[in-house]
Design a protein around this nucleic acid. Structure first.
Length: 424
DNA sequence: TCTGGGGTCCTAGGACCC
DNA sequence: TCTGGGGTCCTAGGACCC
């Protein structure tokens, strides 16, 4: 048996955990640049506020109903997530952290337990330790556990816990789940299935296997098997190393000059290098992209992107930044109003496997690399201790590329100075 | 005026190997 | 008349997830 534990309205719940007065008010959290609604409390959902709506389109509604509106505070959500996960890890022998607000737990050794009762205990414990409300779904496969969790969230009579153990319970749950609500079935496949009169999860479970295999490929075949109670997706206990790392931002203002883009791209490139070093990996490919607004119909869209091989696999900020500047020069087109830019590193290999690999064409001797590596270590250590951005490359300017965040809450759980500010 | 950011996996087809 | 059988690697595009 697998349990899926999922935090309710996670970002909104994090904001609430530190401001009990918000319990009685609808809460929403905005994306970067305070652009779109990306999290809603139950009350905000009831008001009809849709996920992904631009803030300016529902500003009046937010005001009318005295909705508490927050910029996204990723430092807070990340730390709260670790606390939830640490609590869950103590409640089951194995945990797979699936996303910032979800985890699978291995319940296979709990056959002699009263599962619903144990699940209720897990909810109480997480609530007590972190202040975050969660729902628990338990079933024989991950896909069914997802369905159980969804039912636990949607139907109040479950009180946050749904266990699907018998064939009858599973069949009833499948009948009440539409295909588009199945984990792994997105918009395109839903359309395809509905056209074939496959409308519920029960329909999909019973559909001809050959047809599913042909049109939904192995991924769909796996989903079907999981719905039938055959577990195909095992627990993944160690997070695999990342295959690509991307840092991109929409700009809070119009950007037209190469100089401004250079600064943005330098900042993002450097961020990618920091993330690479955190992963202890090296990248061999670098992509830079710049884009105009997809919503502006008065001028042509431009999406400039180019990928180049790095001279040798690296995690060095300076090497990555230099290469990014060259790529940017090649894709910049004068006369555009840019709204977004990004840097991505890929072709990633673990550093350990690479220590002796030399490039046939590299101009720099390995000795120079060793010195640069020490420099990066020192920079990371200083920024770790005194806050990111304390030391940086001159080409970067993180401050000016910070997205607009006018309604940011304090980083309650990671910054002492910000808590003291609240008391005053 | 105004619209997020980060990922993964799979398939098909071309080019190549013995 | 007739033309094998088994692979790998790479890329682009399309699907999906949070």
């Amino acid at each position: 048996m697998f349990a899926l534990v999922d935090c309710n309205n996670f970002y909104a719940s994090c904001e609430r955990a530190f401001k009990p007065a918000l319990r009685l008010r609808p809460v929403v959290v905005l994306s970067n640049n305070d652009g779109c609604i990306i999290a809603r409390s139950e009350e905000a959902k009831t008001l009809g506020i849709q996920m992904g709506t631009p803030e300016f389109k529902c500003r009046l509604l937010l005001k009318q109903h005295d909705v508490a509106v927050f910029s996204s505070n990723y430092a807070l959500y990340g730390d709260m997530s670790s606390r939830v996960m640490a609590t869950l890890a103590a409640l089951a022998p194995e945990i797979e952290v699936y996303s910032i607000d979800e985890a699978f737990l291995d319940m296979s050794s709990f056959s002699r337990f009263d599962l619903p009762d144990y699940a209720r205990q897990m909810r109480r414990t997480v609530r007590l330790h972190t202040g975050i409300p969660v729902c628990v779904g338990i079933a024989p496969t991950k896909t069914l556990a997802k369905i159980a969790n969804r039912l636990a969230k949607k139907n109040p009579h479950y009180q946050g816990v749904c266990v699907l153990a018998t064939a009858e319970e599973i069949q009833a749950a499948l009948l009440h789940t539409k295909v588009e609500d199945i984990w792994g079935i997105g918009r395109q496949w839903s359309k395809l299935l509905q056209a074939k009169r496959i409308e519920s999860a029960a329909d999909l479970a019973a559909a001809p296997a050959a047809w599913v295999r042909k049109h939904l490929h192995v991924v769909g075949a796996r989903i079907q098997a999981e719905l039938q109670g055959k577990s195909c997706l095992p627990m993944e206990l160690v997070r695999p190393a990342k295959q690509s790392i991307c840092t991109s931002r929409s700009f809070g203002r119009n950007v037209s000059t190469l100089a401004e883009l250079q600064q943005a791209v330098a900042t993002f490139a450097s961020k990618c290098a920091v993330k690479l070093r955190k992963e202890d990996s090296l990248a061999s490919l670098l992509t830079v992209f710049i884009a105009t607004s997809p919503f502006d119909e008065s001028s042509d869209r431009y999406w400039g992107t180019r990928t180049a091989a790095l001279p040798h696999p690296t995690q060095d900020s300076i090497a990555i930044l230099k290469a990014a500047e060259t790529i940017l020069d090649g894709i910049f087109r004068d006369g555009n109003v840019y709204k977004k830019a990004g840097v991505m590193v890929s072709g990633i290999v673990p550093r350990a496997s690479c220590s002796t690999t030399l490039s046939l064409f590299a101009e720099e001797a390995p000795a120079a690399n060793a010195r640069d590596a020490k420099l990066m270590q020192a920079m990371d250590a200083i920024n770790q201790r005194y806050g990111s951005g304390t030391v940086r490359l001159a080409a970067e300017n993180a401050e000016s590329w910070k997205p607009h965040q006018e309604r940011l809450s304090p980083r309650y759980s990671t910054r002492l100075d910000e808590i003291i500010e609240v008391r005053v």
